[in-house]
Design a protein around this nucleic acid. Structure first.
Lengths: 194, 194
DNA sequence: ACCTGAACACCGTTCAAGT
DNA sequence: ACCTGAACACCGTTCAAGT
C-alpha cells in the first residue's frame, strides 16, 4: 500500500507542523492527537514517526515555533530610537499575541516534559530571545545603570507581563478582564524597577 | 466481590485526593492516572467515579487545594504592622513554595480545561485569594493612593512574582538560576508601581 | 527507501452484576 | 447501597510487511 514519495521528508515535516498548529489553534492542545494529524495531511500515523521522534518531540518544536512567532510579533513594536512608549507597546503586544493565539500560547505551559527531565537547549534559546527583547530599549533610555542591572530589569518586566497574561488566559476572558490586564501591564511598564 | 463499606464516601474522597497529590508530588502531573490512584488506596477504578465526576473534576479539586496551601504558606509571612520587608518575604515565600512543591505547583498550569470551557467559580475564588494577599500590606504602607490603585499594584506584584517563578520552573533549576529568580523578585517588590 | 496499518500496551469512563 | 471488574473507545508507539 506504500504510496510513492510525493513529498520529501522535509515537506512532510512542515506539513505535520502546520497541521498540528492548526489543530491547537482551533481546538487547543488537548485536541492534538497523532491520528488526527495523520488524517489531516493524508498520511498514516507511522509517517509522523519518520520525521519526529515522538509526540513530545513534535510538541517541543511547535512550542519553539510559537516563541519565534511571538518574538517576531513583538519585534515589530521596536522603534529607533526607543521611547517609554516603545516599552509599553511591546508589553501590550505580548498580551495581544496571547489573546489572539490562545491555543498555541497556552500550549507553551500546558505541555511540559516530565518532572526532572531536562529541557533541550535549542528550545530554551527560543524562549530566552523573547525575554531579552526589552534589554535594548531599556538600555537606550537609561544611562545610569550597569548592563547587569538593565538585564535584570528587562527580565523582570517581560516575566511580569507574561505573568499577567497567564492569569488572564487561565481564567475567563471577558472584555472587562482584558481591560484590567491591560491596565496592569501599563502599570508594570511604568514602574521604576531599578 | 464488593467490599463492605469500610470507609464513608467522604473518607474515600479524602483518600483519593491525598493519594493523587502524592503521585503528583513525586512524579508530576503526567504520572497521575486513575488506575494508579485506585491501586494506591486499595479500591478499584469505579470507586473514584463515585466521589468525583471524572478526572477533570478531581484535577480541579487538587488545584484548588494547591492554591489553598499556597495561600496558607504565604499568610505566615504577614506581619502586624506590615513593613516593606513583609512584601519581600511574601514574594520570596511564593518562590520557595513553587520550588518545594514543584509537581503540584506546575500542575496549576499544566492541567487546563479545554479551549473555551468556563473555569468554575469556586476554583477561581481559591486562586484569586492568593492574588489579593498583597492588598493589605500595601494599603498599610501607602496612604496616598486610592483603594483601586492599591488593588492594581497588589495584582501586578503577585502576577509578576508568579511570572518569575513560572519561567524558573519551566526551565532548569540550578542553584544559580534560583538565585537569579530571587534577585528578580526582590527587584519587583522594590519597584515603585504606582 | 518510503510508507502502511495491524498490533500492543495503556488510558479514562461506563455499567451490569455481584454482595 | 456500595463496589467490582470486564468492556469500550481511544491513545501513543512499534515494526513486519508491502511496493
Amino acid at each position: 500500500m506504500a504510496r510513492r514519495s510525493e513529498h520529501s521528508q522535509a515537506e512532510i515535516k512542515q506539513m505535520v507542523l502546520e497541521a498540528a498548529e492548526d489543530i491547537v489553534r482551533e481546538n487547543g492542545y488537548s485536541a492534538l492527537k497523532v491520528r488526527k494529524i495523520a488524517a489531516d495531511i493524508g498520511y498514516t500515523v507511522g509517517s509522523i514517526y519518520m520525521v519526529f521522534a515522538n509526540m513530545n518531540d513534535l510538541n517541543m518544536h511547535i512550542k519553539a515555533r510559537t516563541w519565534q512567532k511571538l518574538y517576531q510579533y513583538l519585534q515589530t513594536q521596536l522603534t529607533q530610537p526607543a521611547t517609554p512608549a516603545t516599552m509599553k507597546n511591546i508589553a501590550l503586544a505580548y498580551l495581544d499575541f496571547s489573546v489572539d493565539n490562545e491555543g498555541l500560547w497556552r500550549m507553551l505551559f500546558e505541555h511540559q516534559l516530565a518532572l526532572g527531565e531536562p529541557v533541550p537547549d535549542w528550545y530554551l534559546q527560543e524562549s530566552q530571545r523573547v525575554f531579552g527583547l526589552m534589554h535594548a530599549p531599556i538600555r537606550q533610555l537609561d544611562h545610569t545603570h550597569s548592563d547587569n542591572e538593565i538585564q535584570l530589569a528587562a527580565q523582570v518586566l517581560m516575566k511580569s507581563v507574561q505573568g499577567i497574561a497567564m492569569q488572564l488566559l487561565m481564567q475567563k476572558q471577558s472584555l472587562e478582564y482584558i481591560k484590567m490586564a491591560k491596565s496592569e501591564i501599563v502599570v508594570s511598564t511604568h514602574a521604576k524597577l531599578i
